[in-house]
Design a protein around this nucleic acid. Structure first.
Ligand SMILES: [Mn+2]
Ligand SMILES: [Mn+2]
Ligand SMILES: [Mn+2]
Ligand SMILES: [Mn+2]
Lengths: 229, 229
DNA sequence: CTTGTAAATTAGTCTAGACTAATTTAGTAT
DNA sequence: ATACTAAATTAGTCTAGACTAATTTACAAG
């Protein structure tokens, strides 16, 4: 009887490595380089080499002939569950306890490894099975299904159509603070008025105001078309 | 500049050892034997020897000439903070998320080591600064002050006086389930009718029913006199 | 006093997960 | 092809925190 490891069978360290590989994996499916993992987790290259060996033995990841890392189905399953924990926790900390975004992220980064399946379940119910976390990131479902992202960046959005901001994808705190102050936060309802030619600014209607934001900023803003409501 | 360790400077393992010593310390102040710690934490004697050495070096505990363990002020401070985390978490899990007692205890046993001071604070506020956890155990305050226990066991309580159950002190799950089913849970309002002589049972009025419980059971039930309300 | 037992210690081993320093591999650019 | 560079690996070290097996200490009872 082989033991197939699930989330709570693997250490927090392993969980972080898997999550990291999942999140760095580019959509082209080429896999992740070890050096990327090393700097994302702020560990040295030999630490990664060592852990990757263990993860291969556990059948949680494979490597391409070119040495890039690809999660197995099982590895990805664990990564998704950790991400589910993380995003549920963030949502809970922000919505129920009023914690700030940045801090909620740091707290969730730790607690994600320690909550039981039942607590996860209780938080999920308490929040009425949320689909997205406060950043607008989709929350994987318990079966590991990640709701497909149908959102696009504001740059690709149609003009004069009601939109809802669903996610701000930026690591830059300055950028995030700027967006926060401009009231361009997830959940906000906006419409795009026009995009000025020659790399110009975007005119965005929010409430009864119109703001002009740069293309760089717009590229961070993911929106969904909202068919009314 | 000496570094004085505080809760988040010490590992979860250390936190558990300190908590354990605190909770096993008998009120006579004679200190705890290592063998007690070993069996409470389900580790072997050499593990305790080893850890005790480290805790002494950290000035978190001392030993009597007879080799018994006594926490220093700092060690006790950490123990109390871990206990505060534990009891706040239990209260939160039970009251806010509807988790069962037993499970909340297990969950808190882990999470107590991982919540930040700010999350502790938020939970405390969310619960409106509770004084007791669901078992009726007092919650240490942030400054480490443990509200004095004025409760006594049902055996010592006066008859025909309104009482409130404040705590069930038993490790035995059978006992706790029995009390749960008999509606003798913390918060319940009861009056003691009489104690039968020759080691007899206690007649307890709860609501409009009268139950008869053994002295062994009564010894687990801590009550406060409730001056009405 | 001697002896039997419980408690504690010593010595040595193990695992996870990090590290440094040195070396090898592989891909790019000349 | 050669050389330079970035990425990866190897080898060895370290710490925390557990373990076993063997030994020592301390005491209580005869
Ligand atoms: Mn993490
Ligand atoms: Mn889960
Ligand atoms: Mn614990
Ligand atoms: Mn605290």
């Amino acid at each position: 009887m082989e033991k197939l490891p699930a989330t709570h069978d693997v250490s927090p360290a392993i969980q972080d490595y898997l999550k990291c590989c999942y999140q760095l994996a580019d959509p082209t499916g080429q896999g992740v380089a070890m050096v990327q993992v090393a700097e994302a987790l702020r560990v040295t290259a030999p630490s990664v080499t060592n852990m990757v060996k263990r993860l291969e033995d556990l059948r949680l990841l494979r490597r391409t002939p070119h040495g890039r890392l690809i999660l197995t189905v099982r590895g990805e399953g664990i990564a998704l569950e950790v991400i589910r924990h993380h995003r549920l926790l963030e949502t809970f900390l922000v919505d129920t306890l009023g914690m700030g975004w940045g801090e909620a992220h740091k707290e969730a980064e730790i607690l994600e490894h320690y909550i039981s399946e039942h607590l996860e379940q209780l938080i999920d119910s308490h929040l009425a099975n949320p689909r997205r976390d406060p950043h607008g990131e989709p929350i994987p479902r318990r079966d590991g299904l990640l709701p497909h992202r149908t959102s696009a960046t504001l740059l690709e959005a149609p003009c004069n159509t009601p939109l809802r901001i669903v996610q701000l994808r930026s690591q830059d705190p300055t950028m995030l603070r700027y967006l926060e102050e401009t009231r361009l936060h997830p959940g906000a309802r906006i419409t795009l008025r026009e995009i000025a030619p020659f790399n110009g600014a975007l005119a965005v209607r929010i409430g009864r105001e119109t703001r002009h934001i740069s293309r760089d900023v717009a590229a961070c803003i993911f929106v969904l078309q909202t068919t009314g409501k």
